[in-house]
Amino acid sequence: MFEFLRSYIIYMALLSGTIGLFALPKLPSNKAKFLVLLIWFSIVIEIIGYYFTEWTGLLNFYVYNFYMLASLSAYILLLRALLTKKDHRISAILFLILFIVSFFLNILYFKEDINRSYTYSFAIGVLVVLILSCLYLIEIFNSEKILNFKKSVFFWYILGILVFHVPFTPFMLAINWFLIKQDDSIFSLVLFILNFLAHSCFIIGFIWSEKKYNY
């Protein structure tokens, strides 16, 4: 019933990515521009994932597992760049190593059946991003940035990441742990709603943020 909604996700990404391009003049730092790059990277992945089976005859788990590794690693590195305390930045590097190791352990564990989502690695990566995001917010709330945090594109981008990944992770784990049959209609609806919320946060950040808070 809702399967068609999944095809509209790329249009939301195209909208936020295009608005991000127009917002580039007020994204002065490389890490601010990196946010736009990440959105366009997701668009490329969506296109490749859509046609991957048709092009190769293989299931597209390869594409989305790679995207999981690349995107969550990028989020961790982004948060490390945003964190100011030395111990928090060191923790980010250690967490990144933990996530990458878990990913390759996942490959070894399922080496006889690689046509599956690496749900456990995804959950570890999301947990790491959640922890680092909390550290980032704590640093903001304990500094002068609290006065203008809503004018920073980084705040809205991190919020968008959390809005998508935090609800989606238990949904995926429920399917995996309790062997719930994946209903494509429900799955597409959940993906659509969470992507809508995430890209809404990205768009608000690009429009509402101010250049002097985007360094």
Rank of each mutant, 00 (worst) to 15 (best):
I131K: 12
K151S: 11
L72I: 14
L147P: 06
D87H: 15
S73M: 01
G160N: 05
I100M: 05
A70V: 13
N65P: 03
K150H: 13
F164M: 09
L105V: 09
I100L: 03
L94P: 01
S117V: 12
L147N: 14
K85D: 11
D87Q: 14
F95R: 00
Y120C: 01
L159K: 08
K85E: 11
L83M: 05
L137D: 08
I90L: 13
L132H: 07
S102Y: 04
N106Q: 13
L79K: 12
N60R: 00
F164Q: 08
L83W: 04
Y136H: 14
S91I: 02
F155H: 09
F95W: 04
S152Y: 08
L69K: 04
A74N: 08
A174Q: 12
C134G: 14
I138D: 15
G125P: 04
Y62T: 03
I97A: 06
W156T: 07
E144M: 05
I100P: 04
A123G: 09
K151G: 04
L59A: 13
L173F: 10
Y64N: 00
L159T: 12
C134I: 14
L147T: 14
V129F: 02
A123V: 02
Y157E: 03
L58S: 08
V101H: 06
S117C: 06
I158E: 11
L69I: 01
V101F: 09
R80N: 11
L72G: 00
I158M: 10
I93L: 10
V129G: 05
L79D: 07
N142P: 02
I138M: 15
L137F: 15
N115C: 04
